[in-house]
């Protein structure tokens, strides 16, 4: 992974914007920002952002590569689309944020312990395994990802919701055993592999 990072940094010397345009989902929109800040103000997670989207766009133009890619900020995006709706330049800000996060992750620069990233990873692995999410496994895995003690505490805190979901038959307590996955698991795996190949090729991650 470090190699890819080095290779990219080398390839786009001094021009982080070009690197973003070439490698980040919807990255070609970054240059269209006029720094009005409406996105930054519109984000419901506002104060949680170290660098709000409009600032990230400026940082990209200013070549602050490490600061951007190692930032926790774009992992904050919850895809509410408020920013996209309000952006006077119609930038697909949500997509760019996810694109940046994804790119940072691929380069190995994304903050390792970022909870969003870890959740995303868990979710993906869970889903990709059988082609269908095993909810109980995902929930329990998430609660216990920082160890047994915190896992118990987290699960306990969520017990009322859990019981409610059980009663409403929205959660299958035997999911560990009975989860079936989709019919053609092999097909799914093949499909995902192919998709990964295409994406890697498109983004220049293949050797």
């Amino acid at each position: 992974m470090g190699d890819i990072n080095r290779a990219m940094a080398e390839q786009y010397r001094n021009d982080f914007l070009k690197e973003v345009e070439a490698n980040v989902e919807e990255g070609q929109w970054v240059k269209m920002c006029m720094q009005c800040g409406v996105c930054s103000g519109s984000c419901p997670l506002g104060p949680a952002w170290e660098h709000p989207p409009q600032e990230i766009f400026m940082m990209i133009r200013a070549g602050r590569r490490d600061e951007v890619l190692k930032s926790e900020s774009m992992w904050m995006c919850t895809s509410c689309y408020n920013c996209i709706v309000r952006c006077p330049r119609e930038l697909p800000i949500t997509h760019i944020m996810h694109g940046l996060a994804n790119y940072a992750h691929r380069l190995g620069l994304a903050p390792k312990m970022n909870p969003t990233r870890r959740f995303a990873k868990k979710f993906w692995n869970n889903l990709a395994k059988s082609g269908r999410v095993n909810e109980i496994e995902l929930s329990v895995g998430l609660y216990f990802m920082d160890g047994f003690k915190t896992g118990i505490a987290r699960a306990w805190a969520m017990k009322d919701i859990g019981i409610g979901m059980l009663k409403a038959k929205r959660l299958n307590p035997f999911g560990f055993l009975t989860h079936k996955g989709c019919k053609d698991k092999k097909g799914i795996h093949k499909m995902l592999k192919k998709a990964r190949e295409i994406e890697d090729r498109r983004k220049g991650f293949t050797a």
Partner: peptide, 14 residues
């Protein structure tokens, strides 16, 4: 024209 310049990759810095 401003938007066009941005589209062409002209960078604007305040």
């Amino acid at each position: 024209f401003y938007r066009s310049a941005q589209r062409k990759g002209v960078i604007f810095t305040k």
